Lab assay of single mutants.
Amino acid sequence: NKFNKELQWATWEIFNLPNLNEEQVKAFIDSLRDDPSQSANLLAEAKKLNDAQA
């Protein structure tokens, strides 16, 4: 299933962003679980936040 692979990839990527704190990671993962179809958008937002906090 396409969404499942995207969800797994986005989850792994978010867990490995070095500049997000635990609460931010949890919030993004919760959002992914709530709406897996938004995984690409949520990953992009997480990466933006990660870069901003570098």
Rank of each mutant, 00 (worst) to 15 (best):
L49S: 03
D35L: 05
R33S: 10
P18S: 07
L32D: 00
L49E: 02
I14T: 02
K47D: 01
L43E: 01
R33Q: 15
L32M: 13
L43R: 03
K48R: 12
L42F: 09
F28T: 01
P36N: 03
W9P: 02
L49N: 02
L17D: 00
K47A: 04
E45Y: 07
A54G: 09
W9T: 10
E22S: 11
S37N: 06
F28A: 02
E22W: 13
Q8Y: 13
A44L: 11
D34G: 08
L43K: 02
T11Y: 14
A52N: 08
K47T: 06
F15W: 13
P36H: 03
E13P: 03
L32F: 03
N4H: 13
L7T: 04
K5T: 11
A46H: 01
F3S: 15
S39N: 05
S31W: 13
F15L: 15
S37A: 09
N1V: 04
Q38V: 06
L42E: 01
K26F: 07
S37M: 07
N1G: 12
T11W: 07
K2I: 15
N16W: 05
N4V: 07
P36S: 03
L42N: 01
K2L: 07
A54P: 06
I14W: 01
A52K: 11
L42K: 05
L49M: 10
K5N: 13
E13F: 13
N4S: 08
L32P: 00
N41L: 13
V25S: 04
Q38S: 07
I14F: 03
K26N: 13
L20P: 00
F3H: 14
A46D: 00
F15R: 14
N21T: 12
N16F: 04
K5M: 03
L32K: 00
E23T: 11
A40G: 06
A54V: 11
L20M: 01
L42Q: 04
F28V: 02
D30N: 10
E45V: 08
N1E: 14
N41R: 11
A46M: 02
E45N: 07
P36L: 05
I14V: 05
S37Y: 07
E23I: 12
F15Y: 15
N41T: 10
A52F: 13
E6R: 03
T11K: 07
E22V: 14
Q8A: 15
E6Q: 06
K5P: 14
A40T: 12
D30A: 10
E23K: 12
A10V: 14
L20V: 01
A46F: 02
D30L: 10
E6V: 07
A10R: 02
P18K: 09
L32Y: 02
E6T: 05
L42I: 15
N1T: 04
W9R: 08
N21H: 08
N4M: 11
L32E: 00
D34Q: 11
K48M: 11
E22F: 12
L7Q: 04
A10G: 03
E6K: 04
N41F: 11
A44T: 07
K47M: 07
N19S: 11
D34T: 12
S37E: 06
W9A: 14
P36F: 07
S39T: 12
N41P: 15
L49Q: 06
E13L: 12
Q8N: 06
L20H: 00
P36K: 02
W9S: 10
W12I: 14
A40N: 09
N1M: 01
R33F: 15
K2V: 07
S39A: 14
D51P: 01
A10Y: 14
N16M: 09
W12A: 14
F28H: 01
Q24I: 03
L17V: 01
S39K: 03
A46Y: 03
Q53P: 04
D30G: 09
F28L: 03
A10N: 03
P36V: 05
P18L: 08
S31P: 01
S31K: 07
D34A: 13
L49I: 10
A52H: 11
T11P: 03
Q24T: 03
N41D: 09
A44V: 09
Q24W: 02
L7D: 04
L49D: 01
K26T: 10
D51R: 09
N21G: 06
D30P: 00
D51F: 10
W9Q: 14
V25R: 08
A44Q: 12
T11M: 15
N21D: 09
D34K: 09
A27V: 09
L32W: 02
L17I: 01
E45R: 05
A10W: 08
K5S: 12
F3Q: 13
A54R: 09
F28E: 00
N1Q: 07
N21P: 02
Q38A: 15
S37R: 08
N1R: 03
E13K: 07
K2H: 15
L42V: 15
N50T: 01
V25A: 08
A52M: 11
P18W: 05
N16G: 11
L20Y: 00
Q53Y: 06
F3N: 15
A54M: 09
N4Q: 15
N4K: 04
N21L: 09
A40V: 13
P18D: 06
R33D: 13
N1D: 15
L17W: 02
R33G: 12
F28Y: 07
K26Q: 07
E13R: 05
S37L: 05
A10K: 02
L49F: 05
Q53D: 03
Q8E: 15
R33H: 15
K48T: 09
K47V: 10
N16R: 05
K47P: 00
L49P: 00
Q53W: 06
A46N: 00
Q38D: 08
K26D: 07
N16H: 13
D30M: 09
N4G: 14
F3V: 14
E6N: 05
R33N: 14
S39F: 06
E22T: 12
L49H: 02
A10S: 02
A10H: 07
N41H: 10
N19E: 03
I29Q: 04
A46K: 00
I29A: 04
D51V: 07
D35I: 05
N4R: 04
E22P: 13
A27K: 11
K2F: 09
L20R: 00
E6A: 05
K5D: 15
F15H: 15
Q8R: 05
N16D: 05
Q38W: 04
E6L: 13
V25M: 06
E13V: 13
E22Y: 13
E22N: 11
V25T: 07
S31L: 12
F15I: 13
E22K: 12
L42P: 01
L17F: 04
Q8V: 09
N19H: 11
L20E: 00
A52Y: 10
N50V: 01
L32N: 00
N4T: 05
K2Y: 12
L49A: 05
A27G: 12
A27N: 12
N21V: 06
S39V: 14
A54W: 06
A46V: 02
N1W: 00
F28I: 07
D34I: 10
A52D: 08
N1S: 04
N21M: 09
K26V: 05
N41W: 09
D51Q: 13
W12P: 03
L42R: 05
I14K: 01
T11D: 05
N50L: 01
N19D: 06
T11V: 14
A40Q: 12
I14Q: 02
D35W: 06
L20Q: 00
F3T: 14
K26I: 10
P18V: 06
K5W: 05
